[in-house]
Design a binder for these strands. Sequence first.
DNA 1: ATGGCTACGATCCGTAGA
Length: 254
Amino acid sequence: MKLAAWNVNSLKVRLPHLTGWLAKTAPDIVCLQELKLEDPKFPRAELETAGYQAAFSGQKTYNGVAILSRTGLSDVSMGMPGFADDHKRVIAATAAGTRVVCVYCPNGQAVGSDKYAYKLRWFAALREYLAAEMARHAQFAVAGDFNVAPEDRDVHDPKAWEGQVLVSEAERAALRALIDLGLRDSFRLFEQPEKTYSWWDYRMMGFRRNAGLRIDHILVSAELAARCTSSTVDKEPRKLERPSDHAPVIAEFS
DNA sequence: ATGGCTACGATCCGTAGA
């Protein structure tokens, strides 16, 4: 079973990249973030033609998440119970015997800003939500854009980024608090090439300089970690014309 | 040097992302 997560930064613009990548990569389940379109504009027919059923929660301009599956979807839920939020950032579904939560975590804008405070509150709510979901599902994954680089080795220039948003200690602690529920960062279950990132700034030739951050993650329960056979970042779509600024991350399970 | 892309919805610039 192959599970992927990709912040497409506009599903409308990236649909050709997505369908091409689905045909080449053949993931069983895909968590998408930053759809940036309303539900009536979701390209359901095109994705069905590509062989995928979809559950989605979109909005105009910002946010928006979806889960695609080749093998059916059940028990779809949107948002986090007890955390009222206009932002469409969370969708969950069961597919291929696995409970999958797709997340687009807030960016946080700048340390100390209102959006940063929202980000930390949002992570606290996510922890409660995941704890409840994990109590019910042994085969469990949470995948998406977390907007946190867990460690300095996930940052191209830790000195320059020290204390900044996406890297700050409070954000890292919020991410660790999720891990502490009993999750594993699938990427770190394996030896990995140094300087592996999942996002590169559009500006200043970020991708060509490999000036990136690893902020997209697939976190898995112990049961799923035991079945995990690989976890990688697929940089290929980032090389295309008009790419998303994020690359897809992929984990495979026996 | 506080900019630098990209997407969007709104205009011909502002907001947001990370």
